[in-house]
Nucleic acid binder design. Structure first.
Lengths: 140, 140
DNA sequence: TATAGATTTTGAAATCGTTACAAAGTTACG
DNA sequence: CGTAACTTTGTAACGATTTCAAAATCTATA
């Protein structure tokens, strides 16, 4: 499923964020490629489309999108954040130790209930680590 | 349950790591306080006991303990690692958005089975975010 | 179409946690 | 003892991110 720039622009205005060219480019890359890019990945991708864009602009855009609730920041490894589109059922992630790719994984439906009583659960991060099918096939 | 320095030293030698004073102090803090300290928390704690200790020594010790499989590095927030004692059943964590404390939480037993077939799961990180009972009580 | 006001972008410098590295100190063991 | 292996130290570097103030660009209203 691909989101048109018009759809994405509407999401932005709907969330009270002005749909500037750069913000739209950042959101479109996150929403349509679903590759969980880091800020630097995004900077390089956006640079191809808009040469001369500032790294700070990419960070600014990301903050705006995260604050607007359209994008989720994933803290999977120390030091680097990755970014995921939020318009879809909640899901976890799988990080392949071999190729580094990040895959979406379904969340067990009653996971929130497994927390101790008395805690108010607002968000769940579930991350698997291991080897993805592609790398398993290549390995042996 | 508290671990004596002798017990901890045996764990270290058993794992092939020389039980130096600093390493023992780091491990003891992580094992006995169970407060999921960051490297900087540990540096400050160890400094009280051994004034003049170098920050690098704390990092070196942490690396040794993580490599030895006695300590697990938690990547809960961007930028900072926290450290948890590993000698206990696998568990997830709850981070209170209000006070910042980190609590242990049980893992649902068949969580690994919920991953898509074809992936080899080596590790699971489950993190809840929300408000802890103490902060909930104080809030209203 | 002007123009003022608000918002966005820029680029350089700063920050923060962590790592690299080489020198100095310590320990184990023949 | 002597020497090789390991540990600690302190400084400098690193990389991702943030800060900040100036410049550019938009928007609304006249």
């Amino acid at each position: 499923m691909k989101y048109s720039d018009r759809q994405l622009a509407e999401m932005l205005t709907g969330a009270g964020v002005r749909p500037s060219l750069h913000r739209l480019a950042v959101l479109s890359t996150i929403a349509n490629d679903r590759c969980h890019p880091s800020a630097d990945d995004l900077y390089r991708r956006i640079s191809e489309q808009y040469p001369g864009v500032s790294r700070t602009t990419v960070y600014n855009s990301l903050h705006a999108l995260v604050d607007a609730g359209l994008v989720k920041e994933l803290k999977l490894e120390r030091g680097v954040s990755h970014f995921d589109f939020l318009l879809q059922p909640p899901h976890g992630h799988f990080i392949c130790s071999h190729c580094g790719r990040i895959f979406d994984m379904g969340l067990p439906p009653e996971l929130a209930d497994s927390a101790d009583p008395g805690f108010r659960i607002d968000a769940i991060d579930l991350n698997f680590k291991g080897i993805c099918p592609d790398c398993l096939a290549k390995q042996q």
